[in-house]
Design a binder for these strands. Structure first.
Lengths: 145, 145
DNA sequence: AGTTATTTCTAGTGATTTGATATGAATTGA
DNA sequence: TCAATTCATATCAAATCACTAGAAATAACT
């Protein structure tokens, strides 16, 4: 199906939620879970990935929670999706590190996958979390009379 | 991982093989399987999908095999991938028929997915089987001294 | 010091998909 | 008739997906 899984999609919404709500004080998983209507426990696992990568800062204990490490404009959608999805390349031979395809030179379809990969990268590496925030505020504006 | 599965990739190589080899006489699964180094039985299942959709014509019995129904330039890569992969939309809410997302209007990430979908479509709906054939002949040429 | 609210860690689980394999029936050319 | 081929269906192991469960570690507040 070539689909972005819930993991990547939830991670994006999670980061957007943090961008919108963690300005002053840390935000708890429970709040995000309630606002975004996503399983609490599943979110824990997803934010753990973001935490390990240093994309968010955690504060343990009571009154704890999470904060964005950097400014929204410093996160591209690609960073977040690649981290949670593992890779956003349409075929594994495009991941230079893993599985370097030996037939690459004479592989006909490689040229197609390269084109597709470039097209995907062009979107996900240029849209930032700040763009999502902006879009959100625009949309929200539509509902103000 | 957001990967095109073997099914879609094999279907593409299968169609390319037919484009190159079914000019005069039908081509058997066994030949393709040998040339492409793909499991015979798995190819049968994949070509069954292409056959049901009318993308290939089958001839049963001895000396039978498969032929392309149309000319290579009449197949886009998108047609073949969508048929075998089910869908090439990065998220299900972009498939108008199935799962029409009600939050679409106020869904922030929808705008992102739409951009991504457009970028993917722009590639797979404009590259044809004839392009793959051409690329193949170019590559093959590289090995002639 | 103790309680409470939170993150953090490890494990398990049912459903679905993937990438096949196996068996045999139906069809047709020689 | 028989050999070669497609066609149909069933089965299967492994991986992935989307969670769920339980408990330990940590820090703020009283």
């Amino acid at each position: 199906m070539v689909r972005v899984s819930t993991k990547g999609r939830y991670a994006l919404r999670l980061m957007l939620d943090l961008a919108l709500n963690s300005q002053e004080k840390p935000v708890q998983i429970r709040e995000i879970s309630a606002r975004q209507n996503i399983s609490n426990k599943y979110l824990e696992q997803i934010i753990a990935i973001l935490n390990k990568a240093g994309y968010v800062r955690s504060m343990r204990g009571s009154q704890g929670g999470y904060l964005l490490t950097y400014k929204p404009e410093e996160y591209t959608v690609g960073m977040i999706l690649r981290l949670t999805e593992g890779s956003m390349a349409p075929v594994s031979c495009l991941d230079t590190d893993e599985n370097p395809c030996l037939r690459q030179e004479d592989c006909v379809t490689f040229r197609l996958w390269k084109k597709l990969d470039d097209a995907i990268k062009d979107v996900i590496d240029h849209v930032t979390l700040a763009d999502l925030v902006e879009w959100h505020l625009q949309e929200a504006g539509n509902y103000v009379i």
